[in-house]
Simulated assay, not measured.
Amino acid sequence: MPANANKSGCLGILLAPFLGRKAVDASAQEELPYARRDDFLSHAEISFFHVFRNTLSSDHHLLTKVNLADLFFVRQPHINLSARGKISQKHVDFVICDTSTMNPLVAIELDDASHHKPDRQARDTFVDQVFVTAGLPLIRIPAARAYNPEQIRLQLAPHLSMDPQAESSPPSPLGTTDSTPINEEAYAEGNQADAETTPACERCGSPMVERMAKRGPNSGQTFWGCTAYPKCRHTLTR
């Protein structure tokens, strides 16, 4: 190989971050075996999406194909080592969120004939248990060619008038709630206290850490913050 060609190849690799990916020889790139799916939503899911989207108010937003690992986190992950793997490969068909906070309010599964199979029933039982444990409602609706908007609205109405986390999580002593983002710059680094005196988070069971508010009306006050933050924003007063 000519020396100039070798230098050119090395120079292209070195300058690639500055000149863009085109600077790298295309022949050296691995061809990835991916293609876009044409069946992102089934016919039943498409029908439901268009029917139900028009029944929602501006206060609610409809999401499709949501992974369970995006909805839930694992309590005490150092103990429950395999728990995340059990949900990371599973999803629900639809999730309705509060538009202002995008907090999930209720999930929807469309059950077609495949849900009658034993392995799928075992999967559905596990998913149902996850939702019950985490306190997020899951509604199962039989898959169909067409849907009655009023009937669906009646099924979901009880879950759209409240945030499911509001009942289980007490108000934060620092004036924030689980649905309100915390300004991380307003807090000092947490100091882990003695294990015997460190409380466990009442919401998720994770250890808590001592923190101090740096700004606002509670500046200088110490409190317990969950170590699972930002997945869990539960706090306790000292």
Rank of each mutant, 00 (worst) to 15 (best):
V130C: 15
H115C: 11
V130F: 07
D112F: 10
A107T: 00
R123M: 12
E109D: 06
I141T: 00
H91D: 10
H115E: 11
V92Y: 00
P104V: 02
P137T: 01
Q129G: 12
H115L: 03
K117A: 14
D112N: 07
C97V: 06
A143G: 02
L110C: 01
Q121P: 05
I141Q: 06
K117M: 15
A122L: 13
V130N: 11
D111L: 05
V132P: 04
C97H: 07
C97F: 02
I141D: 05
F131Q: 02
L110V: 05
R145D: 14
F131K: 03
C97D: 06
V92L: 02
T101P: 05
P137W: 01
R145P: 07
H91W: 02
T101V: 00
E109F: 09
A143I: 04
H115I: 06
F94P: 01
T133C: 15
L138T: 05
D111S: 04
S114V: 01
I96T: 07
I96K: 06
A144P: 10
T133Y: 11
L136F: 03
D112S: 08
I108Y: 04
E109V: 09
Q129Y: 10
I96F: 07
A113Y: 09
L136K: 07
Q129E: 14
S114D: 12
A122T: 13
T133K: 11
F131P: 08
F94R: 05
N103Q: 14
R120H: 14
R120N: 14
S114H: 10
T101F: 04
V92A: 04
L110E: 06
V95R: 07
I141E: 08
A144Q: 15
A122G: 13
A134C: 12
T125Q: 15
F126Y: 14
Q121D: 02
E109C: 01
N103E: 14
D111H: 08
L136A: 04
F126Q: 09
D111K: 04
P142W: 00
A107L: 02
M102P: 09
R120D: 00
R120W: 08
L105E: 08
V92C: 00
V92K: 05
E109P: 09
I141R: 04
A143C: 02
L136M: 08
